[in-house]
Every structure is written in C-alpha cells, then in structure tokens.
Computed example of a mutant assay.
Amino acid sequence: MNARRILAAMLAAALLFVGITALQAQETDGQKQAVALQAAVDAMQKVLQPGPVEVKLAGRASLQVPTGAGFVRQPEAGAWAKVVGYDKDVSLLNPDLMGIAIPMSEENWVVFINYHAGTRVVDDSAKDWDPDALLNALKASNEAGNVPRQQRGEPQIEVRGWLEAPKYDSAAHKLIWATSTIEKGGDADEGTANVHAYALGKDSYFELTMVSPANEVVSHLTMAEALLSGLQFGGGQQYGDAVSGGDIKERSLTSLIATLPSSFMDKATAFAAAYWLWLAIGLVILIIVLVGLPRLLRRGDAM
C-alpha cells in the first residue's frame, strides 16, 4: 500500500473513533476536540526534533534526546497539553515548561520538562532517607489533597506504592523516583504511573515528569533515566558552582518527593485515565510517519 494511503488511513481511523464516541454521546465536543487536537499535532510535527539530537534549555542546560524519543518545544508543546487536558493553572503549563519529550514508536508515555529558576535544592538530607518513611509522607500529602477533592465531588485518589524508590546520585546531583496513583479502591493496573526526575543546578533545577499507564511504566523507566542522564547544566550553572546575587530560595531535596502539589496529582490521574491521552499520543505517533515520509514513500512507490 502506498505510504500516503497508510498515513491517511491511520489518521482517518483515529478521528473516526472520536466521531463515533461523540455520536454515541450525542454531543459535538469530541469532534471539536479532535479538530483542535489535529491542529496541535500538525504544529508539533513542524518543530519535532527526533533523537538523537541536542537541544538547549533555558540558556542554562542542554538535553541529549536519545534514539527512540523526540523533543517538542514551547509553545507547541503547551498547546498540545492544553488540548488533552491540562489547565492553565497547573504548573506544567506555566512559563517554566520548556517542552515535552514524546515516543518515536508505538509507546504510551509523555515527559514534561519544566525549569525552575531562583531555587537551590539542598541535598544533604538524602543520606538519611528511609524509603518507607518517604512513602508515608507522600501518602499523607496526597490524603490531605483528598479533602478538597471530596468537597468538590471528585474521586479520591491514593498513592499505592513505589514503582521506583527514590535514587539520588550525589555526584551528578540527579534524583529519580516513580509511583502508581489510582482512584481509591481501584485496580492498580488501571491507574497511572508518574516518573519524577530532577537535575539540580547551582540556583535552579529541571523537573522531568513522565506520565504513563501503570501497567506499562516499568518498561519506560529506561527512557526516563536516559533523558535525565542526557540533561546537563552548562559551565557556571552546575551545582558546585558559586551562587552569587539575586533572591535565591532554598528547598530540601526531600520536599521534591514528599510534597507534590495536589493539583498535579489530580491532573496526572485524570489525564492518564482519560482515553483522550492515549488517543492523543496515538496521533502524535503519526508524526513519526511524517518524519520518515520520504523514506516510506520511496519504499511504498516501489511496492
């Protein structure tokens, strides 16, 4: 089959699913969102940088995007995220969002890359970490967020456990950990998993947040680790460099684990539970076909 027809068939199938869903609900919202999603994907396709490639972040660091992933800059990344469920008041869509990493194959994950300036993360608490105590603190933080959720009539959620207990590399000044987050009483396989990774600089840090279905995230941890490993602060911006001038806040390394904002927990759960996320990622995968279209066309025309 001609590659152009393959691409058209894939897109038609995805949009047909949205159309059927909207028809069954006797609403047009699904169709409108499909149009918005297609526009967002079209914009992303124009700026997608497939790995391996180096991208600059905030003038402070570089990211080596590995094979198997691609990078989408702002504002195209934020526009896509808004269409698939993140509100403006969520930290992932504030000006700190540098872009997103997406899969270049049929995998279900997305990584949001945020930059937090004016904050030095003090890492001396890592040596005293107790994984069980950290998990209990994270659960307590989440439970506190369940109170307003219940008042709003929204589902309560729970942190079921570590998928990856916190690991801090004191030489590279990088932290990674992962949990599963599900509705209370739900099946763990139906929940979402969030991989949280941090690279620390002298007076700022990068936060990488991977969202994936809980039953798949273990297979994506390697990619999260590769992205974190590929993020390096430039000269004069590294953790050991002298901090001078400015209003620099301090926060503990432990706080990056135990005090996630409830708004993020709410949105991460709703985002990954909704069929829109995985339909959206499915459409993003169409970009892969577009990126490789000349090669595919040569093969297709020869068939």
Rank of each mutant, 00 (worst) to 15 (best):
E143Y: 07
E225H: 12
D29Y: 15
F112T: 05
G19K: 03
F112K: 07
P166H: 11
L297P: 01
T192L: 14
G201T: 05
E250I: 00
L163W: 02
G68M: 06
T192K: 13
A117I: 05
P155Y: 02
W278L: 02
L296H: 10
T119S: 01
V90R: 10
S212C: 06
G59I: 05
G234A: 14
E154V: 13
P148R: 04
A178T: 01
E54G: 08
A172P: 09
L7N: 12
L57M: 09
G99S: 08
D241M: 03
I248R: 07
G85D: 00
M44I: 00
A12W: 03
Q26L: 13
E27W: 13
D247E: 14
A258C: 09
E54P: 00
A3V: 12
W129M: 04
A12R: 11
A39L: 12
D203A: 14
G85R: 01
K202A: 08
A39G: 08
L208R: 04
V18K: 06
A171M: 10
K82N: 09
W177R: 04
Q232S: 09
A272L: 06
D132E: 11
D42E: 15
A13R: 11
S252A: 15
A14L: 15
S105L: 02
S255W: 06
K184I: 09
V218M: 00
T67M: 08
D42H: 11
T181I: 15
A302F: 07
V72D: 06
A280M: 08
S212T: 04
A199W: 00
A25D: 13
A77R: 02
N146E: 11
F112L: 09
S252P: 10
A137P: 07
K249D: 13
G78W: 09
